[in-house]
Design a protein around this nucleic acid. Sequence first.
DNA 1: AGATATATACCAACCAGTTGGTATATTATC
DNA 2: GATAATATACCAACTGGTTGGTATATATCT
Lengths: 218, 218
Amino acid sequence: MARPANPQTRTRLLDAALGVIRAKGYAATTVDDICQAAGLSKGSFFHHFASKDDLAVASAGHWSEVTGALFAGSDYHRHEDPLDRLLAYVDLRRQLIRGTLPEFTCLVGTMAQEAYETSPDIRDACWASIHGHAETLVPDIQAAMDAQGIDAGWTAESLALHTQAVIQGGFILAKASGDARHAVEAIDHLRRYIESLFHAEGRPESASASRSIMGASA
Amino acid sequence: MARPANPQTRTRLLDAALGVIRAKGYAATTVDDICQAAGLSKGSFFHHFASKDDLAVASAGHWSEVTGALFAGSDYHRHEDPLDRLLAYVDLRRQLIRGTLPEFTCLVGTMAQEAYETSPDIRDACWASIHGHAETLVPDIQAAMDAQGIDAGWTAESLALHTQAVIQGGFILAKASGDARHAVEAIDHLRRYIESLFHAEGRPESASASRSIMGASA
DNA sequence: AGATATATACCAACCAGTTGGTATATTATC
DNA sequence: GATAATATACCAACTGGTTGGTATATATCT
């Protein structure tokens, strides 16, 4: 009927938003910032999004898709043992801490903290992203618990969410200190915790996740 | 010399800033917001602070003082054993999760995430607050390590920082979900981790930190 | 009086969102 | 297969309101 909906343009705006918001925060990011980063005009922006908040919600969804594809396509799923898969996931998260802070930190963690009181829509979209990602870990955690007959005072769901809490908290320390190693060390502690829960102190890291180039100490 | 420097006014502005910034985030907080919350005028604000960023730095320092006094005056230090002191600290942090999210979440964790790339002064002030607080835990952790002859792949400093990472991460989950119990559960996992590190699985919580009114499950 | 503290009025810059309009692709009609 | 009609995609310029910050007046204290 008309000029085809150009998904590239909308995606360009969303991708630009991911970068700018992670660097400056959501409130400090202007629509013009995003347009400039995307090489598009404001008119185009408001053609694709009803408001800045609408973009925030959409960018949380976009974030879920991008990161979801990354994890779904990653090969840590190939381990036979569910506990190995869980530990390989943790190793992957550790390995992904590379480059600059805006590159590896979490969009929805950042936005949630700014918008949780003022914008329920954004908050819900952020929670859907965090919670949805955590849910992907639950089957493996539950299987590992079942395999060992573990029945402690915690659930698979709560441990899955805890992994996200540790990672988010590590990002905050890294941002505040300017040193990404603090995020790496938080994940190292997380791995040690999971090993202790499953009495798996000895399990080695997968080869692909061996000591990162950052030289962070264990 | 003249009218005495009225510390009440400055403190009123700082206290107002703590509340507003934790609720709305730093960038979304306007100077007028803070003035209104403090019941003071803009002229007064800029008499006491050179700029909004100057207030942010000062409020991080104020935060350190307020929270520092709270923890210094708390009675978890009275335990004889350093490990008991550490666990009692964790229990206190758990217990402090009460009321609304802006009331119990962390100012400097919030600000760091917004300003880390754009304002080095604010970032440094936030890191000084987080790091300084973590440092207060190091002597007890080190003493507990020494008492048990622990020499693992982690340091007292890194565990101290990890406690802060877990707490900060728990706050993010609580904000995103709107449910404070997620912060409580993160701290429960943290306690379990510390117990496992020091082979202290059985130690009971102190009476004052017994199950919170929130009814969060262990 | 002299210095500090607080208030009011104001401004220039900025920002989210609007407007009016152009370009381009698809479809309908011949 | 040309062309008119139509709908979408995009843009530059503009607007109304907001924001950080300033200028200046008044009040209070020694």
